[in-house]
Structures are given as C-alpha cells and as structure tokens.
Design a protein around this nucleic acid. Sequence first.
DNA 1: AGAATTTGACCGGA
DNA 2: TCCGGTCAAATTCT
Length: 364
Amino acid sequence: MERTVNLEQKTLINELIQGKELAKQLMNHLQPFSSPEKRNFLVGKILSSYEKALSMLKTSGTDQSKPFESPHSLDNTSPRSVIFDQDYSKHRDVFKKRKVLPRWTEQVKVCMGTGPEGPLEDGYSWRKYGQKDILGANHPRGYYRCTRRNAQGCLATKQVQRSDQDSSLFEVTYRGRHTCSRAPQLAMASANSLPKHGLKAENNDQFPTHEEQDQEEEKPKQPQATGLGVKTEDFDTNNIEDGRGIFQPFSFLSTPIESDNVGRDFFSDIVENGIAGPFSPPFVSPAGSESTSLSVSPWHNMSSFGLANNNVQTSESDLTDILSTPNSVTNSPIGDLDLTLDKVDLELDFPFDSPEFFSSCQCP
DNA sequence: AGAATTTGACCGGA
DNA sequence: TCCGGTCAAATTCT
C-alpha cells in the first residue's frame, strides 16, 4: 500500500508543520493578557504533535496496518487523549467489528448569559431519542439524532454528556455525517435564529438544549454554550466523517478573544481539531461538512479547509463516499478536496477579528 | 393536532 | 451477563 505510506509521510509532515504552527501560536500567547490555559493548551498540543511525529517514525516502518494509531490525534492536549492513545488498539478492534460510523467528540462549555448557541446548537436540528445513565458517570447521556432522519435519511446522531468534573462542560460526541441539507439553518443567521430544537424544557438536568441550559442555570434565556473544550476525538472511525466532524470541534474559548489573536486562536483550533486531528487516521472520511461549532459561517468555511487537509489522507473509498454524499451548498466536499494547507493560510486572511463573528462567544 | 421529549424495554456487542 | 445504544409508547408542549 503505497498510499498508506504516503499518507503516513503526509501525516508526519503535517504533524511537524502543526508543531511549528502551534509553536508560533504559543509565541503569540506569551503575552501578559493571554490566558495561561491557552498557553498550556498549546504547549500540550505541540508536545503531542511532536510525540506523534516521533511515534510515526518509529512505527511506520514496522506496522503499516496501523499507521498512526492515535485516533484522536486531534485532542492531543487532553489527558484523556493520552489514555486513548494507549488504548487505541483496543478501540480499533471494536470499531472494526461495529458498524463504523465516523465519530468525534468535542467538549463544549456552557456559558450562560450569551447567545443561544450551545453544545447542541451546532446548526443542525436534533431530536432527542434517548437518555441513559452511563456507568461511572455522574450524569446521564443524552442521545440525539438529526431531525431530518426520516425526511432525508440523515443518520447523523450525537451524544451529549455533562462532564463529571465540570458541570458546565459537555462532551458532545457526533456520529455519522449529515447527509441532509440544512439550508435553513446555515450559519451566520444562526446566532439568534437557530432552529429551536430542544426548545422544550427537558427534565433531565443533563442536556442543555439551549433551553435546558437555561433551566439549569435558572437563567432566563439563552444560556450559551460556547465551545470551549475544543477537543476533538476523532478516533473511532478515525474519520472525519462529516467532514464537519473535524470542524465541529472548532469552538472558541469562552474567554473573550482579543481581535488580534482571534485568527490565531482559530487557526490553532483548526490545527487542533481539523488539520491535526484528521491526520493521524489513515482514512479520514468524508463528508458532509459543516461546522457545528458556533454556526458562524466564516468558520464554517474555515473548517472546510481543515477538512481539506484531512482529506489529503482520505482513502479512495472515503473520497467516493464524500463525493457521493449529498451536501448542502456550503459544504461542498468536492471543493474541500482540493484544499491544501496553503489554502488554509489564505483563508486566515479572513476577518477573524471582525466582532460579528464572535458575537456569540462572549462568555466572561 | 402535530411535534418533541421522556423513559422503560429491547437488542447487540464485549 | 453487563452495558451502551436505539426503539417506541406515553407524555408533554406548542
């Protein structure tokens, strides 16, 4: 499998590039006003990136069947990610046997008092179809599926679980790519006009479907989940599934972002969640593509770029999948396929510092 | 009335 | 057998 080798090389290169970019970002964060968390986050990413690169160098020649095990190369910083890496082989087997739907996780912090976007407000309409108490977890897990499941056969689902440690944190695991068109909810508009799935008061205190969040906090309205965790674990299927999967992760730190750093933060997120993550897995998958995170279209596009990179390593089957996957106009996977890091760089010129793009992210 | 959520039951994988 | 994920009837909400 020459392709596998090439992918590994690309991944390796990407990891190194990522490390370099992260280092740059870190440099920018070495300023007094930069949050320590972000700095630590970047440091962790950098270390992880290089670790992976080294790991690839060590293993790529010996076991091609599993090029880079880390399925979640994306979430390098989280302690959990380390665990995942160690157990990845185990997960891998599981995924092989199970019907594999691309899956990735992102952590979202609920921030009260701001916009309507929450962990669940990712631009899609979801319907809750179940809730389960999970062993070892203090909070039940909510199961959601795309409301267009029946209408358009969209199989995308997601699971939302509140973090045990920080109740304001929600871990959202997406599964499957959206094959539906979500035209009506496209970004920008989203901020305040997102569909109100979940407008219902949910009894369980677990899942902030916007409203729920409100209830939890007793906040009158719109508590907001600002993407915080920004963590993507795209392992499982190692896919990017939805293409957007990768992007979804794009969440922004809940802390105010200095305009000057916005672009950088964003980029870091891309690297972390998009570019970086997807690299590891041998077959990144296709996708749909939409960004779940703030539902702000510009980001959305950006995420696409991340995807693009991911696609670099996408297997043919995946590509086929992508191509055959119906997507909304904004998510044209095809276009993404041609994107490269260069493209990403170009896109970084986007006015990230434009206030409107962060209007929904004003957590204190 | 229709849509969404809740919740216990069921199913399949480990 | 246990556990996570899904189904579907009942319930609630708009």
